[in-house]
């Protein structure tokens, strides 16, 4: 927690989270007029370079103020990414721990199942899902969740297996503690800690992937829903003449990913029980 880099990471992430929360509640605070839709200006459709104070980040086609769009988009992206990682983690960890607990053919079954999904490259898979289900953002989310959970399942299973063999688990057995209770009280907490770090790192990655997918064409029914990938896609054709059009949305993604990464590193150190002196 003390290292400067993780503090910076924390600061970035907190800032982004704050923006997202504000968007949700009282967007005007940061100057966003409409958190759910970008506002085109059909009068001045040509992208304008950044100018203070009207358009701090410039505008993109057709006349959408980038600052507003990005601020609003942050909420959207964060929301979806968070959802994906959370759901994926929950599914993955549950299955992984169960596989480790039961062992035998259940373990094999689950792991083969996970392997199948693990071997699928996300891009073609997402496109395939898009073809079947539709191109809504919710469909993208589903695709990504399906691709993401096996990672956690594997990881959780490995951790659970090693914890299962520890002396303190054997001691609990000898103390007469029931198997389920051992799972819940001993195995899961010791498994969760390293995974938590993984989760935080993944949030940064997923944001990028999500944006990448929206860039290639997944979009919400509301074509004007502010979303970072969509923004980049929108401004792509103007990239050469009006670079700010892709620069700012891209930076928004990048900074978040870096921040999350730094935070993840810091979390790893902070959650090591050696740093906790009192609990409750």
């Amino acid at each position: 927690m003390e290292s400067p880099s993780s503090v910076m990471g924390l600061a970035i992430v907190v800032a982004y989270a704050a923006i997202a929360m504000i968007d949700f509640t009282y967007p005007q605070l940061i100057g966003v007029e409409n958190a759910y839709s970008m506002i085109p200006d059909y009068v001045n459709t040509v992208p304008q370079p950044p100018a203070w104070p009207t358009h701090p980040f410039g505008t993109t086609f057709p006349g959408i103020d980038l600052y507003q769009a990005i601020m609003a988009a942050i909420r959207v992206d964060l929301w979806y990414s968070f959802l994906i990682v959370l759901v994926g983690a929950i599914i993955g960890i549950t299955l992984g721990v169960l596989a480790a607990y039961f062992g035998g053919y259940i373990d094999e079954l689950l792991m083969r199942f996970a392997d199948i999904f693990l071997s699928i490259p996300y891009l073609p898979f997402a496109i395939a899902v898009g073809f079947i289900l539709g191109r809504e953002l919710s469909d993208v989310s589903i695709a990504l969740i399906l691709v993401w959970w096996p990672l956690y399942a594997r990881y959780a299973r490995g951790q659970a297996l090693s914890v299962k063999e520890s002396a303190f688990v054997e001691a609990a057995k000898a103390s007469g503690v029931g198997s389920w209770r051992i799972m819940i009280r001993h195995v899961v907490p010791n498994v969760l800690t390293p995974i938590f770090v993984q989760v935080s790192l993944d949030l940064g990655t997923v944001v990028q992937i999500f944006a990448a997918l929206t860039f290639i064409g997944f979009a919400s029914a509301n074509a004007l829903l502010p979303e970072l990938g969509a923004l980049i896609s929108r401004g792509f054709q103007y990239a050469v003449t009006a670079p700010w059009v892709v620069f700012f949305p891209g930076m928004a993604i990048l900074v978040f990913a870096i921040g999350m990464n730094l935070l993840g590193d810091g979390l790893r150190d902070a959650l090591d029980p050696k740093y906790r002196t009192r609990r409750r």
Binding site: S166, A167, F168, A171, N190, T193, P273
Partner: peptide, 11 residues
């Protein structure tokens, strides 16, 4: 057990 480090749940 032999190893006092691993026989107590660190958490």
């Amino acid at each position: 057990f032999q190893d006092p480090n691993s026989s107590l749940d660190p958490r």
